[in-house]
Design a protein around this nucleic acid. Sequence first.
DNA 1: CAGTATCCACTTAGATACTG
DNA 2: CAGTATCTAAGTGGATACTG
Lengths: 138, 138
Amino acid sequence: MATMTAAERRAESKAMYNAFLAVCPSQKLLDRISNKWVTLILTALGSGPDCTGEPAAMRYSELARTLAGVSPKMLTQTLRSLEADGLISRTVTPTVPVTVSYELTEIGLSLQQTIRGLKLWAETHMDEIFAHRQTSGV
Amino acid sequence: MATMTAAERRAESKAMYNAFLAVCPSQKLLDRISNKWVTLILTALGSGPDCTGEPAAMRYSELARTLAGVSPKMLTQTLRSLEADGLISRTVTPTVPVTVSYELTEIGLSLQQTIRGLKLWAETHMDEIFAHRQTSGV
DNA sequence: CAGTATCCACTTAGATACTG
DNA sequence: CAGTATCTAAGTGGATACTG
């Protein structure tokens, strides 16, 4: 066992690369935002309940209505993870029944703005990409 | 059947929202880049074979080596879809055996630059996010 | 209102082996 | 060298029903 087979060496370099990816900040960010609902929630909170304006707090049910079709499971799960990452804040007001509202934190807002860069690129170029996909006969 | 039940109305608005998402350029872009290998390939082609410099063409096997651990299946599949979208170009040189090289197109380069914006944000803020996740007791 | 809990269907990635 | 083909394991989202 002093030497390695080629297969073992390959497996090892692969494991190292995977380990590298696991700590790569960019990959971690992509893992975070690569979720349908994450970007939608950030965008919703960044545009207010009527999708027109300023960042604003929104309630659970407002979000559920805005993101039509999200299951409560996914909404809660996504909100929780965003909260754990400090991207949004959750505020409970002890009315009866309780009122819960969510809001972007400062860093969440900064992420949302970065995502706007992507959005802009998308709106400018996605047509072109889609057109290319059509013509290249897929 | 003239009227709809509440459940039917909900199902319908959900379907409409899903249809909207399906054509939303931002979501389509995210679908595109939300793939581990997509960003890695774009970054590899944008940084040259030695990861240091200028955008450069790379061969299939160079990519396979750079992205240690990618299976031929995923590499081919990802390259093909990027090519179909016009983000990279594939050039076959009829040597024996054949030489195939991949290169960013103009629009692919522009996307890669946009992704750099994400990378930058990630490198600046991911520590903070990760730290927050730790302290919030998950 | 604001969730929680459970179960299922489906996409996707990876391993592996073979080929022009 | 540059792929293709097949099979399987696993993560992930969605439907649904119930609760403090």
